[in-house]
Every structure is written in structure tokens, then in C-alpha cells.
Design a binder for these strands. Sequence first.
RNA 1: GCCUCUUUAGCUCAGCGGUAGAGCAGCUCAUUCGUAACGAGCAGGUCGUAGGUUCAAAUCCUAUAAGAGGCUCCA
Length: 666
Amino acid sequence: MKTEIFYVSLQSFLDYNIEFYNTMINISLPDGSVKQFAKGTTALAIARSISEGLARNVLAAKVGDQVWDADRPIEQDTSLVLYTWADAEGKAAFWHSSAHLMAEAIESLYPGVKFGIGPHIENGFYYDIDFMDYAISSDDFKKIEDKIMELAAQKQTFLRTPVTKTEALAYFTQKGDEYKLELIADLPEDAITFYKTGDFLDLCRGPHIPDTSFIKAFKLLSLAGAYWRGDEKRKQLTRIYGISFPKQKELTEYLNFLEEAKKRDHRKIGKDLELFMFSQKVGGGLPIWLPKGTALRERLENFLKKVQRKAGYQQVMCPHIGNVELYKTSGHYDKYGKDSFQPINTPIEGEQFFLKPMNCPHHCEIYKNKPRSYKDLPLRFAEFGTVYRYEQSGELHGLTRVRGFTQDDAHIFCTPDQLQDEFKGVIDIILYIFKTLDFKNFTAQISLRDKNDKVKYIGSDENWEKAEAAIIEAAAEKGLNTVIEYGEAAFYGPKLDFMVKDAIGRKWQLGTVQVDYNLPERFDLEYVGADNQKHRPIMIHRAPFGSMERFVAVLIEHTGGKFPLWLTPEQFIILPISDKYAAYANKLKETLEAADLRGSIDDRSEKTGKKIRDAELNKIPYMLIVGEKEEAEATISVRKQGEGDLGTMSVNDFITRINQEVNQYL
RNA sequence: GCCUCUUUAGCUCAGCGGUAGAGCAGCUCAUUCGUAACGAGCAGGUCGUAGGUUCAAAUCCUAUAAGAGGCUCCA
């Protein structure tokens, strides 16, 4: 039955080809040239006409505005771009094809399994598979990898066949794969294709690489559960992550990269450098900041406070809990009530309090503390506000996902006309912070309303249009490289988020700026305008770091624990050659501390080499070695972490040097 | 919460049915040393927890807790 469908489709396809074989078509290439080829030529054939070497490396091609298989016949005049491993599109086809190959191997080893989806991802690919009654674990990886390499070497092609919806449904009904049937049901009638590799036939849009022999190195990375279509209520499939490369060497390099990244994991560095800890007794997801971590965090907070003071913010402080009425007014009670930490009850009065999950309701109350005039606006209330949110236990991750964290929060209350300027002001702060901390690889995402479903958002159409335009214009004016996502806005307003990657390339949202029409409404916030009428202010939530916890985590991974000198908990360590020089070391420390530098003395009875090694591993930026010579000359011998001996200098020269290094950013 | 894996000394890890091991850290002694690990000795673990199988369990089985990689969600 299934082969028949194939046969018919393929035959008609070939007939079609032959019929038009002799006609020529014009292909325009990226260099601007236009060349003639026989109708029905392929990207691969065109590549071969340029060079044999190029043909060997072509993985896919852009024909017109679509990415195609390199071996799919081209029937009309069009433009052509060839994609190789160097192109994102080439990698995508390569990894997508690898997912098919993996599925083929798995189907042959575990007959009867059902397949969900198997896309490429940023690094590699995965396939969601229903393994039915098979018990699968990472112990099976070797067996699967061996099968994959065996199949890859067979140089199997990815045979593309357009099918009708009826044919597609018939095939997967007969195969008994309900996941594919569900996918097909959602597809349009005339755009369904099958791809066949060896014995494995899959519903697939393509494109694929010319054949499996391009895949020279293959590694299955991990196993995970993934809900079908991301829906928690539906069946959980087994997701297998893998990665593949055209060269063995590249796989080795990638695995080395992963190893190196592990060393920069903030959880490991946080433990090694004694920055923070977790305790089972205190509770999961509740980070405890150790003295050095606290020193680092306080310095970051003070830095931001200073920036915010200059930008016209006022610091406020609020309690960690709030009465249930506060959250009923804010609407958080309905939204978070059940999926949150449960209320705290007072013993006698029977009052209910919630741990605060956000600072905004408290800040709205501050706004309401007295009547506000348009002359008071914008008002900017800032608070390092610790909030508590229930996260499912499986979600917790080091400092990046926790249950108690401190937002570098502030709420700006302004008039609609002030919105754009305020937005720009916030972007300035975020960019200044990123620049100061050398975060170069960030992306900015503007989240707007779903254009087709405006009813689910609160606030007037006019205000939304104004706010969305304000964000887009502000971002453009600040030269941000942004992506716009429709439908990603919160129900209460559009937002702008800044994402930064961690050591292994996972994206984390840090800074965020959100417009809010909802809370001013719910709290009935108002100001008296120049017209002596009452008006509703607009509220902007913003947190440049996002949270202290997540920001420090990403900072650790970016720096590998080598923090900038102005931030680092310990700037210097004095290493006396022997305890004969303890007095000089103590005096030196006093002098440096008087000059606002911070550090300590390693007065252990160890050899200098040992002390240096320990200081290097602790990432202390400056090691000051003092012995007989230094004491006699009142100098210090300076060694910089990671760089080595800088020679001898006077104490004042050292202080000047440090101050210059600290001040170059601040 | 769900899927897969992990859990042995403060840290990193070996042992995988037959009396608990190493390196580092710690302590004591010795040493007073010049740019990445001096030496000797000592101490440290009911092998995550609770059951079970077995003559015998760190090792096999079951449950449970915590951690890791994902999924859903989110700063």
C-alpha cells in the first residue's frame, strides 16, 4: 500500500521531469551573475559546474525565497544561494537530517516506536519519541550511535515525495503513529511531503542534505522527558538530544567546549570561591550568600544605586509580606493564589498575609500615600526587593532559578507623554551596566500584542499603540539590535527584555522593562493634570539586572570568577616570603586599606610557590610578595593573576595603578 | 510536578556481592622558604535515607530525599 503511493507519485514526478527536460532556465547567483541551466537541474549540479569541491560541501540551497534540498530539481528561473556547513541554514539541514538518521536507527533497533517531532536546535537536534514498552536509558546510546554510523556510511539519500493529505493520513494510520496524524491534521492540503531515508519514512517539510555520508561524527547527548506539544496534560515522550558533525575533529572540539564550559558553571565557581551556598535544611532554591558573595553583591547594588540616584530615582523599602487584600486588589491573588506559597495566618485575628511575589503592589501604595500632581511626575521608586515565588522543585537551578530572590526593582509612574523618554532613560541604564560589565553578547526582545487577538489585553487601544510605538522608537534610537515578538506581551502591557547567554549557551532573561496599564487601574492611581482633571498615570516596571541572583550567576559564568577589579571581593593578597616579614605585611595592609583597597594576608607557613598557586586558583587579582628586599626598600613585588610577575613597585604606584583600573569604568 | 541520570571523607573521585580507598583540604610536627603544589605523621565515612533479597550489600531490588540535564513555567 505505502510503496504504491510512492511509486505513483515518483513516477508522475519523473514523467514531469522528462517532459520538460530540454528547456533551459536562468539562475541568478549571489555574485550577481546569471547562468543558464537545463530545466530540472539541481543546486548540487550547479555547484558542481562551479567546482567539484563546492559540490562536495553543499548541504542545502536557497531557491527563490525557500530553503531547498540541494538535489531537488529546479523548474524555473530563480535565484540561488548555496549553503554549506559554514551557513546556519546548512547546519540546520545537516542536524535536521541527523535527527532523521537517528530516528531511522532507533526504528530499526526498537520496532514499533512512535515518533513526535525531531527538529534541529541551536546546537544539534532532538527527536521526541514514544518508546512504548521499551525501557530506554543512556546506556543504550552506544548501541544507537553504532547503528547510526553504520547507516550513515551507507550513503542513504533523503528521498522527497509530495503526497496528498489523504495519502499522508493513510500511511500513518496504517503505521499507527497518532502523533504524526495529529501533525498532518494541522497541515494545509497541498504542502505535505514525505522524506525517506533507508527504511525510515517521515513526514517532513525538509530540506535535507544530499546523503547520509556527510555525517561523519555523531553523539547522543542526553535523554529527557518532553510533553507532547509542550502540554503538561498530555503524554510525555522521550526526547533524545544529539549532535553531529561533518568531521570527527569538530565533534571532539565541541565536547571539549562543553567540558570547558562546565568549569565556568556558576554553581561550581560559587562553591569554589565561597560566594554562596545552599542548605537542604534551609530549603531548596533558597540561596545563602556567603561573606565574599555578599561583598560582591553589595558592590553591585551600590553601583546601581549610584547610577539610579543620578537618574532621578528614589530608594524605598517595603516589608516582605503583604496582606491578602493587597494581592486581591493587584489581581495577583487570582493569578497566583493556588500555585504559590501558601498564605501566612495570624494566630488570633485570623489575618492572611502572602510572601510578596513582586514589589509593584507595595509601590502602588506608596504612590497612593498622597495626592499626586502632574508636576510630581515622573516618580521613580526603586527598591532591592526580595520576593518569593513557588517554583516546581525540578525547576530550581543554581542561582538562575530560585524560590527567593532580590529584584533590582523600580517602578516609574509617568504620564503617557513621558513614556518614551522614561523608556529611553531605562535603556540607557541597562546599556551602561552591560558596558561596564563587558556584556557584549546580549539580545533585546520587544514583546508586543498579538495583532489578531487584541481583546485579551487590558488598556485602551490608543494607549497600547502609543506604548508599543514608544518602545520601538526608543529601542531604535538607542541603536538596540532587537527582535519583535508578537503575542509575547504581558496582558497588562508591552515589554522589552534583555537576554544574555551563560557558559553553555543557554539564554537567560536579565534586564526587563515593562509597561503596565493594569495596576494603575486596579489601584485607582491618579494625578491631577494641568487641566485640573484627574488622570491615570502609566506605570513602568524595570529591573536592569533582573535579579541579583541571576545576574551574579551570569556574571560568574562570563568572567569565570575573575571579576572586574572594582567588584571583586578581594583585590589583593599579601604573600610574605616568611613570617619574618609579618610586621611589614601588616603595615602594608593598613596602608592599602587606608587607600580604600581591600585584601588580606596569607600568613601560613607555606612556601611562596604554594601561596601563589592558591591565590591564583582563588582568582585574586593582585598578589603582593614581600620579603627582605621589599621591606628594606619599602616596596612591593606585584604579580597579576593569570598574567604573572609585574616586577617591583612602590606602594603608592600600586595604589595609583589600582585606582586607575577601577576608575576606567566607573 | 514529569522523564533520564547521579548521590561513597569538607572537596574531586575510585571501588560495583566477601573486613571502606586515593589525592587535595584539615590538624600536629618539622621547615622560614622569592613568583603555580617541601616533607613526616594524625584524624576524618553507620557509602543520601528507609525497607527487602542474600551466609554476606557501598555493590542487587523497592520506596523515599536531594542534586544534574531536559519538559512546562518564569527574573
